[in-house]
Design a protein around this nucleic acid. Structure first.
Lengths: 216, 216
DNA sequence: TATAAAGTTTAGCCAAGGCTAAACTCATTG
DNA sequence: CAATGAGTTTAGCCTTGGCTAAACTTTATA
């Protein structure tokens, strides 16, 4: 069993992408100082969870990646479970799962997955890694890059910003929502969309966090 | 928010009774060394959670007691929740709740309590403290001290020993079970009981951990 | 009542995981 | 191509919460 701190580091590196992650980038993501990150990265390298090139950055080894996926799996299963059983709102899920994920045994993880019918998406539409780190190919596209005048299905909303999330919720945007882009504003990339009968404008920064697919 | 370690100390002191708890007793309950306990007790005293008389023992202050009750509440709510939703067996509950209890926010605690209809007993029959530390009077009696030839209702089984617990379960002894003591063996205090159609013998050590009431 | 045993505390060590301040690297860019 | 500034690392410190070994109390017993 790895410590909470180690699990958080691995999860953060995983979220920040497959390429080398910089010390500062990681530090701000974890809300700690760069010097602390360097120290921990050395330990993680020692443990074989991370590859580190000084002054360049760090990336997960296969072992580190599997551990990160395990944390992400627990997180997303918990979000799904809390949503289904307690009916927590989408914008409350993240913060609760964030702490519980570190206290979930393999057995309880399995029981929850079983109870939920082994879901592959959490309530935000994010894919849930399998018990051995299997993660299906992501084909969802950012709404900000999507074509005009096609019917799009929202597949994912962000999970970690409850302000954005409740704004989206209030505008009926969540996984499953159908919408159509009417036009794009040149000056700032904001888009105007139709959802059912209403039209709303979505800023490009938010639109880049919403993922869609073209399927029915 | 107190650390996991502090919550565990307070819970242990609470479980070990209202009188002064000795260093060694606490150490063995927490499975750490006495010297470590002394050090932590000094910190807890400093924090106003514990009263300590050197070479005599420690007891909870009111603040410490309230915090302990909060941990116990979370633990027992979690056991109840995991039992209800996932159908975990009574002997699996304790160990899972033991880690989750430290990661439960006030909000989630409230949501779970609400979902369960504010239960006052957990699946082992132990009373669940209220949100402000309210704990109703315990009137349950150890089975080992109970009178012969009366119909008794099992109210509580232990929560922390899965061996005993699964033995009891296999013999249909759990909260709600009706039974009658047929006789008591003088030589070791073991008792012979009738449960429905079957008769079994219960050792005095186990019988002292099962609590009953005389109600219907 | 002196002393041994049992229990408690103190002193000092260690690892984890933060921090600040200072030193170092590296990619610019004048 | 030297210098500057951004980013990274090192050095050294701190707290938490364990540990062992040694010192100290208290209690029980001879």
């Amino acid at each position: 069993m790895y410590s909470v701190a180690i699990e958080d580091y691995l999860k953060s590196i995983w979220k920040l992408g497959s390429k080398d992650v910089g010390t500062q980038e990681l530090a701000s993501h974890l809300d700690i100082k760069p010097a602390s990150v360097t120290k921990m990265i050395l330990r993680l390298t020692e443990m074989g969870l991370v590859d580190h090139t000084p002054y360049k950055g760090a990336s997960l080894t296969r072992r580190g990646e599997l551990e990160a996926l395990s944390v992400v799996r627990r997180h997303r299963l918990l979000e799904t479970f809390l949503s289904q059983t307690l009916g927590l709102a989408r914008d409350e899920l993240h913060v609760e799962a964030e702490r519980l994920e570190h206290a979930l045994s393999k057995e309880l993880e399995a029981a929850i997955a079983e109870y939920l019918g082994n879901p592959t998406r959490d309530p935000h539409g994010h894919p849930i890694p399998g018990p051995n780190g299997e993660l299906y190919e992501e084909t969802d596209l950012p709404l900000s890059d999507s074509p005009i005048n096609m019917t799009l299905t929202v597949m994912q909303v962000p999970d970690n910003d409850s302000n954005i999330l409740s704004w989206l919720e209030n505008n009926n945007i969540y996984p499953g929502t159908k919408l159509k882009i009417i036009s794009r504003d040149d000056f700032d990339g904001g888009i105007n969309v139709r959802i059912g009968l209403s039209k709303i404008r979505i800023s490009s920064s938010i639109a880049s966090l919403v993922k869609i697919s073209f399927e029915e």
